[in-house]
């Protein structure tokens, strides 16, 4: 590009100009490369310390151990933490996925322009509320309210944390699904109306199926948010690592530690930065990064591969 100009016009002005063009181009390339460098740095940081962790604790003990007690028993089984994360994610999904999709249908198909103009910014605010505020909300307001329904509930419990995580991720489901539904061309809707379909039939049998890849990828992204969510679960779900399964009703009312909460609890305690406990932070971090990274990739693939192409 720039060498072309200097060839054509020649002379002093064009050379300085070309040098300047090159300079700015280089500057912008460097900015873009920084994002690759960030990814590499994340991977290197996590794997480096995780590897030194796995040289002391076998990777099988870490992945399949059923007891997480780094400070007291020195046991590093990640399964209880994974179970906590899964419970919270399931609970959040039960709240957010149906509500998010229905919200998206309402905004995209039913809402009038004026409703849309305040509903969408309000949902944006819901996504912007600091998570520590959500955590406070779960602990101080939601849990006491739940205790009138379930007297057996503990102060720190999975139920209230997962409900609030669910509320937090509603906007992610709603806005991405709505984007997908709005992208469905009006000609499809009109053709369907022309065949005598009602608005309900158009919404459920035309728009939703046509937007299904976007909806699915929004689900995965929102669930990956729930997995990575830290402060709500740290504040409201407590810090006792327990192996429990989602279909045990009692498990929802008790405290469980998620992977992210365990990271915060180790990170803010005064453990020696070189100790095994501290290194386990990076092993959990790597696990978490791998899971969310895989989910993001799957979401991208779904969005790209199963997208209905319209002109």
């Amino acid at each position: 590009m720039s060498t072309d100009t200097s060839d054509i016009t020649g002379g002093r002005a064009s050379t300085t100009r070309s040098a300047r063009e090159q300079f700015y181009r280089g500057l912008f390339v460097a900015c873009g490369v920084l994002s690759i460098a960030t990814t590499l740095a994340i991977i290197l940081t996590l794997t480096g310390d995780a590897l030194s962790f796995f040289s002391d604790v076998s990777i099988l003990d870490f992945l399949f151990g059923t007891n997480w007690s780094p400070q007291i028993a020195g046991e590093y089984g990640v399964l209880p933490l994974v179970a906590g994360t899964i419970m919270v994610t399931i609970g959040a999904g039960i709240v957010a996925l149906p509500l998010g999709v229905l919200t998206a249908i309402y905004v995209s198909e039913y809402a009038s322009e004026s409703v849309r103009s305040w509903l969408k910014p309000t949902l944006e605010i819901l996504a912007g509320v600091p998570t520590v505020v959500y955590g406070l909300f779960a602990l101080v307001y939601v849990t006491p309210a739940l205790s009138s329904l379930f007297p057996a509930i503990e102060t720190f419990n999975v139920l209230s944390a997962s409900l609030v995580v669910g509320i937090m991720i509603i906007p992610y489901v709603a806005s991405l699904s709505e984007d997908a539904m709005s992208a469905v061309p009006d000609s499809l809707r009109e053709a369907s109306y022309g065949l005598g379909a009602t608005k309900f039939e158009v919404s459920t049998t035309v728009v939703v199926p046509a937007a299904i890849s976007g909806i699915a990828s929004s689900f995965i992204l929102a669930l990956s948010r729930a997995i990575g969510e830290t402060m709500i679960v740290t504040i409201a779900a407590g810090s006792s690592a327990q192996l429990a399964l989602p279909f045990e009703p009692g498990a929802w009312l008790q405290s469980m530690e998620t992977m992210t909460a365990a990271m915060v609890n180790i990170g803010k305690s005064d453990v020696d930065p070189g100790s095994l406990t501290y290194l386990s932070l990076f092993a959990i971090g790597l696990t978490l990064f791998a899971i969310t990274f895989a989910m993001n990739v799957v979401s991208n693939v779904i969005a790209a591969r199963y997208r209905e192409e319209y002109e």
Binding site: L46, L221, S224, G228, T230, M263, G285, F289, N300
Partner: peptide
Amino acid sequence: IGNLAGVPSVVYGLL
């Protein structure tokens, strides 16, 4: 860049 936006914030703390 899209994937970086989805990395949990606590992992950035480790970074």
